[in-house]
Design a binder for these strands. Sequence first.
DNA 1: TTGACAGGCAAGTGATGACTTGCCTATGGT
DNA 2: ACCATAGGCAAGTCATCACTTGCCTGTCAA
Lengths: 100, 100
Amino acid sequence: MVRPVSDVFKALADPTRRALLDELTDRDGQTLFELCARLTTNHGLASTRQAVSQHLEVLEAAGLVSTRREGRYKYHHLDTSPLGAITERWPATDAKGSNS
Amino acid sequence: MVRPVSDVFKALADPTRRALLDELTDRDGQTLFELCARLTTNHGLASTRQAVSQHLEVLEAAGLVSTRREGRYKYHHLDTSPLGAITERWPATDAKGSNS
DNA sequence: TTGACAGGCAAGTGATGACTTGCCTATGGT
DNA sequence: ACCATAGGCAAGTCATCACTTGCCTGTCAA
């Protein structure tokens, strides 16, 4: 199962999904309903449960979120490791010798 | 003039724009026509001049590319500084103390 | 000054993406 | 057994995005 780099960038393109990552950074292992509530209270985003669920699917497909089932709860965990590839891909602008 | 973080992510969401950043990483200060040619040869992307031009607009709006006019040429320069905010925003997953 | 080259502007089209709506499954408490 | 809770599935809508098409502006060389 390949995790295309493209998926990571597309996942980060949406403000709601970035807010979800923020929430998971603040408190890892939340359920869908918890994330819904906190999106509303902390970010002023009135998203439906379905909308949030779909966003989480995208984040999971990008490898930024991993899920763990436990009874009727599904906990979402943050995984920031795919983010490293971003800054590694385009090195610091000044570090490559400007003139040529 | 504020450069919304959102613009950086949206700019990175497109494969063609990422290829443009790759090309500018490889060789900074290229013109529109140069970038068009190199997109085709190096990335197999058969993009129109207009398409590439619009992509460069997006990258410039995101602060990832700065332009410099010289006669009838317009040189595009890479600026990777906005990328730092990405990895800083979501710290390494293991580094935040897992339990709480 | 004429024409080739480098680039810009703007309306239109097709596809992708975010979100909704309605209904369904499964787990756990009482 | 029953019902509330936690979540999933799928079709449909609407907006955004990438890209095209056609024409226009500005610069340089002959």
